[in-house]
């Protein structure tokens, strides 16, 4: 079985600094994979490279056997790669409903004529999108906030809005950048449930960056550990937990004298 998302030998330099080195990823359908690592290891850079915000200096990224390296971020996104952001990039002046509607952008094809004159095609498509948006809001439990500004919501709800928005682009692969950062334990448990639901309901592969090991251990089937831009370990949660290199990277070298 060929993996859904395949990254081969991706390397990236910022100026002279090597941020990511020889990164490989095989993400299979309906799997949840985690990416862990200490601060500054280049985890978010890996995300940004795959989603097209930066162009990798070397290497190739294939989504569903299709080469997507070097495409614009919006092209990559419309091929089925949704993501959320570590620091919650919500749109300041837009309501929750607008957020989710706008994410359907690549699914509209009524064109400019439709947007200028309000043709029948446009009304039909926008009705469909509205319905789809309402369904998504229900799934993520944000229907009550539909007409509120997204930035005014409680933190956990903002995270859910971002996920709902990412799901609105109908992704095959969903990237979650620290989905539980800053959450309370109750919100955390809820988030685990939501992510499990998402996988079941939408049948997507999920790739996530996370700091909280409990969360990662509970959700992920496989885990990669990234240190200084290089993958030092890859395997099941148990393997990672007992890997000496990982422990060293996280806790520092044991000083035996």
């Amino acid at each position: 079985m060929t993996p859904l998302l395949k990254v081969e030998n991706m390397t990236h330099f910022f100026g002279g600094l090597r941020a990511v080195h020889n990164y490989n990823l095989n993400l299979e359908k309906n799997k949840i994979q985690g990416l862990i690592g200490p601060n500054g290891a280049g985890k978010t850079t890996v995300f940004n490279l795959i989603t097209g915000i930066f162009k990798p200096s070397e290497g190739s990224v294939k989504l569903d056997k299709e080469e997507i390296t070097g495409l614009f971020p919006h092209q990559i996104a419309s091929k089925g790669l949704g993501r959320t952001f570590q620091n919650l990039l919500l749109w300041r002046h837009l309501t929750v409903f607008d957020h989710i509607q706008i994410a359907h952008y690549s699914q509209i094809n009524y064109g400019l004529i439709g947007s200028f004159f309000g043709t029948k095609k446009r009304r039909k498509q926008e009705a469909e999108i509205e319905e789809s948006a309402r369904r998504l809001m229900e799934i993520f439990d944000i229907s009550d906030f539909a007409n509120m500004l997204a930035v005014n919501l409680p933190y956990g709800a903002q995270r859910r809005v971002e996920m709902a928005r990412a799901m609105a682009i109908k992704p095959k692969v969903l990237f979650l950048d620290e989905p539980t950062a800053g959450m309370t334990p109750e919100e955390l448990i809820r988030m685990i449930q939501i992510i499990k639901n998402v996988r079941k309901e939408f049948n997507v592969a999920i790739f996530l960056i996370e700091h909280r090991l409990k969360f990662v251990m509970e959700l992920c089937e496989t885990i990669q550990t990234l240190v200084f831009g290089e993958v030092i370990a890859e395997g099941t949660p148990e393997q990672i937990q007992n890997n000496p290199q990982v422990i060293e990277a996280y806790l520092g070298k044991e000083d035996i004298t």
């Binding site: 919006h74 996104a77 947007s115």
Partner: peptide, 26 residues
Amino acid sequence: NFVTSIIGKATNAVRDNETAANAMTV
């Protein structure tokens, strides 16, 4: 018509955060 269409609302997304707009296929 334009500003209430999704194509038009995408301009709002570009205004408020271009990176996010890009990641959401705009």
